[in-house]
Computed example of a mutant assay.
Amino acid sequence: MKPLSHLVRLGSLLAGLELLEVPVADLHVAVVVVHALCETGGGAGAVVLLGLLRNRSFSVLNRPPPNYPGHVPLTRLEKAAMAVGSGVMSFLNPWRGDLIAIFGETTASPYFIERLRRAMLSSPTGRRILRDRPRITSESLNLPYLRTLPKNTVGGTYVAWLDREGVSPDTRTSVRYIDDEECAYVMQRYRESHDFYHALTGLPVVREGEVALKAFEFANTVLPMTGMSVFSVTTLKPAERKRFWRVYGPWALKNGLRGQEVINVYWEEEMETDVDELRRRLGIEQPPDLRDIRNREKEERRQRKLQQEQQQQQATVFLLVV
């Protein structure tokens, strides 16, 4: 029975090594672990395991230093677990911005965020953005000044959208789980530019508007998080789903694919630009005003309900008279 117990312990240790991404393919490592198990009944095997973990360049017990302030290095296993967990939870609760941010970061590396970075490097404006590293906040944009701009300017349109939707540019969380420092900034720039995409398209922050905008962003940026967010269309009301497939889905696909890379817009330099001129330059058509459509539908429902109540009251009065 003793050899069998050794094999069980060996299997447990090897499973632990594999989960922690310790390279156990080396025959010498396997021999050392087996020898330690056979000689000491497993105690030295644990010591060997801990020694391997300490000597590794990267494991859950031995992380490298962060590459930038706030950076949290993760193993592949940790990234996969966080991607699955945050993806499921953000689908169930799409208002959890923190979970959506985690899902976006853990699924963007390595290919997708690198593609977006290359898109910026291929553009003179994108290269300037990467060099200057501007941040989009209420202070950096000077919102009081933007409120003095004409309504047809980018700045005027943006601040009017913020005020209408009750949104602030200061709510975007910092990137933490992308290893490359420049790619982390690219993700941060995308995240902070999201409200400009809203203002440019006029889409509101209601779930229906977010799904439409995420579909546009996916066609334009190819970030997996934006594509997965489109599956939230299944949570919309029947009338909203029908409208998405008939109107906003085709609009998002057409404009996202044919439009310029919106990540390369230096928003801080476009505040006084006519918003329609910027849309033409980017090749983006403004979709039907979703907020206006929803308000009209809401008013129609209110009127129908009022008419039904009046009819019920009239019927009640008639019965009382009779």
Rank of each mutant, 00 (worst) to 15 (best):
A184C: 13
A184M: 02
A184I: 05
Y185K: 07
Y185R: 08
Y185D: 02
V186I: 05
V186M: 04
V186A: 01
Q188M: 05
R191W: 08
R191K: 13
R191L: 13
E192L: 12
E192H: 10
E192V: 10
H194V: 11
D195N: 08
F196G: 00
H198T: 08
A199T: 13
L200S: 01
T201Y: 02
T201C: 06
P204D: 02
P204C: 02
G209R: 00
K214R: 07
K214V: 04
A215I: 08
A215W: 04
N220Q: 10
T221V: 10
T221S: 11
T221G: 02
L223G: 01
L223K: 07
M225D: 11
T226K: 10
G227I: 03
G227H: 02
S229Y: 08
V233R: 01
L236N: 07
L236I: 09
P238F: 06
P238R: 07
E240Y: 04
E240L: 02
R241V: 11
R243D: 06
V247C: 08
G249V: 09
P250N: 14
W251S: 00
A252K: 04
L253P: 07
K254R: 15
N255D: 09
N255K: 06
N255Q: 11
N255M: 12
L257R: 15
Q260G: 15
Q260A: 15
E261M: 09
V262H: 09
I263K: 01
N264S: 14
N264Y: 05
W267I: 01
E268T: 12
E269F: 14
E270V: 03
M271Q: 04
M271D: 07
E272Q: 15
